[in-house]
Nucleic acid binder design. Sequence first.
DNA 1: AGCAAGATCGGT
DNA 2: CCGATCTTGCTG
Length: 170
Amino acid sequence: MTPIRLSKEFFKQNALDLAPQLLGKYIVKNTDGKIEKFMITETEAYCGEEDLACHASKGRTKRTEVMYEEGGKVYTYIIYGIHWMLNVVCGAKNNPQAVLIRSIDEVNGPGRVGKRLNIDKSFYGTDLCSSKIIWIEELDNQTPKCTYSKRIGIDYAGEIWKNKLWRFSL
DNA sequence: AGCAAGATCGGT
DNA sequence: CCGATCTTGCTG
């Protein structure tokens, strides 16, 4: 089975559809010709301006503007001054959504994912459909069975949004 | 210009 | 449970 890079069409899905489908897919990194692949094992969906846990709930800012682009770009930001978060922008243009990559293979936790993949500001806005540095592949088009739970670390988002089962795990 | 909080983690 | 560490968005 030949691995296939995920297409723009795939990333144009809404976050709630994309987040579970990213499980079992592979993040591929090309570091000076050295290829590494990591299976995605946990994701979270962040769903537009009305989702108070989503950074886009603040509206269009310098930080969130990449989420307003068509799906398929990378959204990175630093949190607590220490950890780089890796997100996949998804959905249609001007519909700001993203999927947070929370875990890969044996690397649990989004901060550790960012560290393992050497994610930083330079990845902000990278196009996963054309980049030679980072992209996502599938070996088959199966979506593995996953479990659903509440998103982590968003208690500030209020009862409605913090209780959504928008975290997906293998 | 200053401030408070954050999609976390590792060490007490 | 607390500190790290710095960007961001909000206030004035």
